[in-house]
Structure formats: structure tokens, C-alpha cells
């Protein structure tokens, strides 16, 4: 199974947010989407999840044209994303946040409750289940965001800066969690990440964006050896 973006272009007014970018995500692999601020990473994830219609280009899910699908259709077909801002329901408990996603897949309330606890347990959040979401720490909030995404039975999981605001220890823990999710849910994962060290360990492939264009792609080693990447992303002489 494949989620594929071909020659995607997105413009906001005169600004080219994404220009002629192609990216392919297979089931069972972890791809890192990296680049400086304003490179178009989130815009590309928005396009891949139906939140942004591209000006040009095509999105295909398992070969089927999904370019004009609304966001909830992507989600229903297993393309699930998280948000930088997480967007939990602040007034509901952690368990209820996850249950809502499960109920959305057609489960009854009792079944949803049971499964929500399993997912929370899987992510080490059992102790948080009864807390209101607004009481969570930053790191826990992000993990609950991932729990809610897992509840939607993702085949492709798009994580928008899941490690933002976490300390190094938490971020490394998150990396292990993401790898575990790939193994246990056998889904394809696209991670937006700033921290190069984390990305290098986690991802099989990297896709580097700079000012809306693809700067480099390949294995982490290939990307690191790419002169254009060294020049633009790490700075000259890096």
C-alpha cells in the first residue's frame, strides 16, 4: 500500500508554499520530512491529509486518485494525521478523547471504552486516562494526540512535529514509541521533525524541503552526503 504525492504545488497568494514536490510513503516504513521553518513541511502534510487542495499535482492512495478528497475521507481510509497544536478536546478526559475516535470508527460506547484503555496502556498513559485533557503536561498531551490517531486504525500516520517542545529524554522515548507503532500497526509513518539526530536514527528515508522545493531525498546517509543538503540545511562548510 502506498500514499503518493506527485508534483504537488501549493501557492498562497503569490507565495509558493510547495513547488513541484513528489513524495511516496509505503506501508511499514518511516520517512522523515525535514527542512527549516517555512520550508513547506506542514503544507505538504496538509495536502497529504486533505486539509489543503494543491494548485497542481495529484495525491493517490493505493493508486486511487484522492486529490479532491475532504479530510475526513482521508481519515476514514486510514490516512491519519496529528497536529502541531495537538487539538485534544480540553474539557473531556483523556480516555474520552480516544473513545471519540473509536466511536467514529463505528464502535459502541462500551467497546470503545475498553479499546481506549488498551491503546492508552500501549502508550504508557494508563495513569492519565481519567484526567481532563487540559490538565496534561506538554509531552503527555502529544502522546494522547498519538493515541487518538492510533484509535483511527491508521495505515498511514502523518506526525506533525511530534517531538516539538519535548526534552531530549522524552524525544528519544517518543522515537522508540514511533518505531514500535510502525512494527505493531505495520503502518507507514511520515514524521516532521527538526532534530536531526532523532531523525537519523528513526527514519529509513528522509525527504528534505527548502523554500517549498525538494532539496534532497534518500537514506539518511545519502542525504547527509548530499552537497546541496549540507549547503542549505546545515549551513556552508558544515
Amino acid at each position: 500500500m502506498t500514499l503518493e504525492a506527485s508534483a504537488i504545488t501549493v501557492r498562497f497568494g503569490g507565495i509558493r508554499a510547495v513547488e513541484d514536490v513528489s513524495l511516496r510513503l509505503h506501508q511499514g516504513e518511516i520517512v522523515g520530512l525535514i527542512g527549516p521553518n517555512g520550508a513547506g513541511k506542514t503544507t505538504l502534510v496538509n495536502v497529504l491529509s486533505g486539509f489543503q487542495r494543491p494548485r497542481a499535482g495529484r495525491i493517490a492512495l493505493n493508486g486511487e486518485d484522492a486529490t479532491r478528497w475532504p479530510a475526513h475521507r482521508f481519515a476514514r481510509n486510514g490516512v491519519v494525521r496529528t497536529f502541531q497544536a495537538v487539538r485534544l478536546y480540553p474539557g473531556m478526559t483523556v480516555a474520552e478523547n480516544v473513545e471519540t475516535a473509536l466511536v467514529g470508527t463505528g464502535l459502541g460506547r462500551a467497546a470503545a471504552r475498553g479499546q481506549a484503555l488498551e491503546i492508552l496502556n500501549y502508550l504508557g498513559l494508563t495513569g492519565r486516562a481519567a484526567l481532563p485533557a487540559k490538565a496534561l503536561s506538554y509531552g503527555d498531551e502529544r502522546r494522547v494526540g498519538i493515541a487518538r490517531a492510533l484509535a483511527m486504525e491508521p495505515r498511514f500516520l502523518l506526525l506533525d512535529e511530534p517531538a516539538a517542545g519535548l526534552n531530549i529524554g522524552e524525544a528519544e522515548e517518543l522515537d522508540r514509541t514511533i518505531a514500535r507503532i510502525r512494527d505493531d500497526f505495520s503502518c507507514g509513518i511520515l514524521v516532521i521533525e527538526h532534530n536531526m539526530a532523532l531523525v537519523m536514527n528513526l527514519c529509513e528515508r528522509l525527504h528534505v524541503l527548502a523554500t517549498g522545493r525538494t532539496l534532497a531525498e534518500g537514506t539518511p546517509a545519502e542525504v547527509m552526503a548530499n552537497p546541496a543538503f549540507k549547503d542549505a540545511y546545515l549551513g556552508a562548510d558544515a
Partner: peptide, 8 residues
């Protein structure tokens, strides 16, 4: 909006 995304 989020709820629609979650399948509500």
C-alpha cells in the same frame, strides 16, 4: 472540525 476528522 476535529470531530468530523475523527469520524463523527
Amino acid at each position: 472540525t476535529m470531530s468530523r476528522l475523527l469520524g463523527v
